[in-house]
């Protein structure tokens, strides 16, 4: 009927599908490449032994521990702070200049590149507060970095809780705090959880900020003031300094697998959340 329009449509659709296919292809390639090269080198010894001669030999056990410490502590700090901020923004205030300022702060913070967080963590936590390159300094820096994500996702999850639940809860004689904790947070938990898990993934994969604040020690940490090296940084150092390609691939595979696992977990929680809401 209108051959030109139909023709254009066909071309456009083809181009679009090709580009989208290309994207998915690249993604699969990246993950596949790392896993194929890395998986064969992951052995029990690799996961449980300490690295020897700068990582050329041995395993990555202290590095896994270091990663868990830094990323876990970052989430332990940023999680409660972020969720409480979101509660404050949604339940305890009306939209005003004040909330606009808080939200603007969170949005700006979200856009700051990690290297700037690294610089800040270095002057503030490492030098000014005298923590030295340590788990604590790295975790605090990372917690600032993921804070906006947690605030934003928690806020969205809380806003998705129907307003009528609040009326019902008040009608049954709850105080505001009881309403927030027992109804709103309980209903928003999967959404909040997803945000926190994604932030955990971001903390694990961050390199630049950690490099400047947590150091790169290869020993098992004994306290929060010890310097550690995270998986992402270890991988960077191994590959960049050409220490051992084999170990680099294996480290990358561990890293990618854990990120994949974390993302799938988040995705699964989200799906359950959506399924329950509708």
């Amino acid at each position: 009927m209108r051959p030109i329009a139909v023709h254009t449509q066909r071309i456009a659709t083809t181009v679009l599908w090709t580009l989208a296919g290309l994207t998915i292809g690249v993604l699969l390639f990246i993950i596949g490449f790392v896993l194929v090269r890395g998986l064969p080198h992951i052995t029990l010894e690799f996961l449980t032994a300490a690295p020897r001669s700068m990582g050329r030999e041995g395993g990555v056990f202290p590095i896994i521990v270091g990663t868990i410490c830094v990323a876990g502590l970052a989430i332990l700090i940023a999680g409660p702070v972020g969720v409480l901020t979101a509660i404050y923004l949604t339940e305890y205030t009306r939209p005003s200049r004040l909330t606009a300022v808080i939200r603007f702060g969170a949005d700006c913070l979200a856009g700051i590149p990690s290297i700037i967080f690294g610089l800040f963590g270095f002057v503030f936590f490492v030098i000014r507060l005298g923590m030295g390159p340590s788990i604590l300094a790295g975790a605090l820096t990372l917690s600032l970095m993921v804070l906006p994500t947690i605030i934003r996702t928690s806020e969205e999850a809380i806003r998705a809780v129907p307003l009528s639940y609040r009326d019902v809860s008040y009608g049954l004689g709850s105080t505001r705090w009881q309403m927030v904790m027992r109804v709103v947070i309980r209903s928003a938990l999967p959404g909040i959880g997803t945000g926190i898990i994604l932030s955990l993934g971001r903390s694990i994969s961050e390199t630049a900020a950690v490099m400047l604040t947590a150091g790169s020690a290869l020993n098992l940490p004994r306290s929060a003031y010890d310097s550690v090296r995270t998986l992402a940084l270890h991988f960077y150092i191994l590959s960049r300094e050409g220490i051992s390609m084999e170990k680099a691939y294996a480290t990358a595979a561990v890293l990618v697998l854990s990120i994949l696992g974390i993302n799938l977990l988040a995705y699964w929680i989200m799906r359950r959340f959506i399924a329950r809401v509708t």
């Binding site: 009608g171 709850s174 209903s187």
Partner: peptide
């Protein structure tokens, strides 16, 4: 106020069972 609302119960136009 919470105890007042316990004494004076309310049912809304649309049934809102909590999830």
């Amino acid at each position: 106020v919470p105890s007042l609302r316990r004494r004076v119960g309310m049912v809304y136009a649309v049934p809102v069972p909590l999830p």
